[in-house]
Design a binder for these strands. Sequence first.
DNA 1: GCCGTTTTCGGCCCGACTGTTTTCAGTCG
Length: 578
Amino acid sequence: MSREEICRILEEIALLLELKDENPFKIKAYRGGAETVSNYPDDIIQLARDQQLKGIKGIGEALQEKLHELVTTGKLEFYEKLRAEFPSTLFAIFDLQGLGPKKVKILHRDLGINSIEDLKKACTEGKIADLAGFGKKTQENILLSIAQREQSAGVFRLSAVASIVAHFTHLLREHPDVHQVSVCGSYRRGKETVGDLDFLVATSFPADLTKFFVTFPGIEQILAQGDTKASVMLADGLQCDMRAVANTQFPFALQYFTGSKEHNVALRQLALQKGWSLNEYAFTQVRDDAEPLPIVHEERDIYTALGLQFVPPELRENRGELEAASKQELPRLIELANLRGTFHNHTTESDGKNLLEEMAAAAMDAGLQYLGIADHSKSSFQANGLHEDRLLRQVEKIRALNVEYTPFRLFAGSEVDILKDGTLDFSDEILAQLDYCVASVHASFTLSEEEMTARIIRAMENPHVTMIGHLTGRLLLKRNGYAVNHAKIIDAAAATRTIIELNCNPKRLDMDWRWWHRARDKGVLCSINPDAHHADQLQFLHYGAIQARKGWLRKEDVVNTMSLDKMAAFLATPKAQR
DNA sequence: GCCGTTTTCGGCCCGACTGTTTTCAGTCG
């Protein structure tokens, strides 16, 4: 039983207890237990097996016993009994925005609703509006939520499939008859979400490879299996395809299956101009007066043959990359290794899981020169936001630690709430004592686009606001961002010299990559920030680099590529003169 | 269900917003 499975079961218990109207603090205890299990820095499975969980904060006697039962028997009687009381399809309803345990319980009890399908039917039949505590508006909102969910069904966040990609790629690479392996498709292009995974292998024995592929762990159903292609469905609904080609075909297949479709269509048109046809296997001559066929050893040679610069996969979205490549004007894209530090990180002082010192140690381990600490401000109650006195004490502590940490450096900041009217949660006098500040919206999401845009612009006009955090507040596949006029925000950012964050928490990836090219052209700087609530989450910078590349950003467009000296000088310069 | 220089019970995160009500319950961050 894996750590993830245990967490899922504890979370599910919490939901079930909510349905049963249990003591909310008991529910909280199960959630806390899941959190502890997920973040525990040691082998908590082994500790549970050896009954050595005593003393771990958040795991009391009851959870100690339950975890022991889970890891030794693979089952938990308490959970099985609880689960038998409700249909499993009921859980999906909790994912809908606006529906919590109380409402779900009423729907289940009074209308016998057991699934999203039942719920949708009841809504369209107008049965929901008559329920006590519900109304017409609620009914409409539920239908909206369902529509949004349907839109994103069978779609996964990039980070959610990363481990499957690594695992399957590894298994394929280990096979003795495989020469080359790559994942293709939207995953290779670094799209924020993917619908399926495409694996490509070069081999002389394709049929053996498709046979091998369908034996991979976690496969629930084999959708198709032929001599060169296999298609499978994993238990979580993720479809994985594998294609096997000859070694000489590999570069063509890699290019073809990476896409995007629109990029490929444009590329094939270029080939036709030279008298060649391009498909997933080769160039072929289609006109007598065609130029001689090029020799292709690797993917790059295809682009070269067409008179193009190599187009990195992240840019292959048919958004001007071929035109730029034909003029040799593609930007030299930023790389993860260019990052020297990062801002917007939390500690246990607000809702982070690691101490200030632990976050600093993780940053040093990651090879960073500096780390910005930006805990929540007081209005974010739910996140244990800091009042002025706690903030100033933290600043003092950071200054003291910096003496010891030299040449590494902590920057003292705050993730200050942008209040409903665009003013900030801290006064200018307080903000002036910080090295920087990230200003973010955490409440009043339902303002009109005009109001929300004005609200954020007002915050940017504050000389102490260094950068705007998670611009739209979106949670990928879960919640749309609040209404913001990106173009106006970008213009205001340029005018006020305010940095825009690329929040690289894989659930957010906000501001969206589609806007960065425009921001860059207006001279707006980007800060790639993990929004880390745990020391391990500094690794999110990896996703930030990918999204920045998708947004055509170069090293010079991203502030946290600056060396420590330059960064310190930059922050010390008044905002208007940066 | 967890926790404890108030240690075996009593407290545990608080406020805004929405949609339902006619003073508030449910949900969310």
